[in-house]
Design a protein around this nucleic acid. Sequence first.
DNA 1: GTAGGGTTACTT
DNA 2: AAGTAACCCTAC
Length: 213
Amino acid sequence: MEDEMDLEQLCSGPRNEKNLHECLGGVFGGYSFQMESPFHSLNVLDGEAADEETIIDDFDIKDYVDPSMLGCFFPSAGLGHGRRGPRRKSISARVEVGELFGSQYPRTSGGGKGSRSRKNNDHWTKDEMIALVDGVSRKGIGRWSKVKRVYFSTSIRTPVHLKDKWRNLVRACKAKSASKKKVKVQKATEMIVQRFRRQILALEAMHLGKKKK
DNA sequence: GTAGGGTTACTT
DNA sequence: AAGTAACCCTAC
């Protein structure tokens, strides 16, 4: 697929914003669905300007989620599924409920059945992931504390959690273009990957490009 | 504070 | 066995 070629180029190719947008143009050319609006402005990642909030004009995460909800997550103890890894329908009723109501409440397993010594065992909600993508788009990869402060101030998520989740998201995005997986990604992740894959990969590519300099 | 490898727990 | 996902550990 041309899609995969473009993604490869995206992952290894772009070294500056101009090139990146050229790559993105190619990627967009391969699509005729999904997002109406193309992309965050990426100059947020350009040099030290990343310290400042960047206004996103042509694309806004809030098209997808109520702005007042972003960065406002609360743990709800005792609701745990006590599991990690892919979750099956039979044991994930809570996910369905959460999605129905656009839940901002990650499910914890603290004290729940089957939980071990780990404090948090929450699977990320769709909205949390959206907030993460939004935060990283604005603050930049590696500014985990900043993202935490602004977007997850009341959440149980730590900067390390954000970093780990971003890593998982990037991996999921890359896996998406690889051949069929043995294990499917979880539903919420799948949705995020579908919607934000190009954006996540582009941010990652920019980050990698910067690191090499 | 962050990056990246490791561990644990789960599914196919 | 191999894959995903969340969290832990530790060097820098």
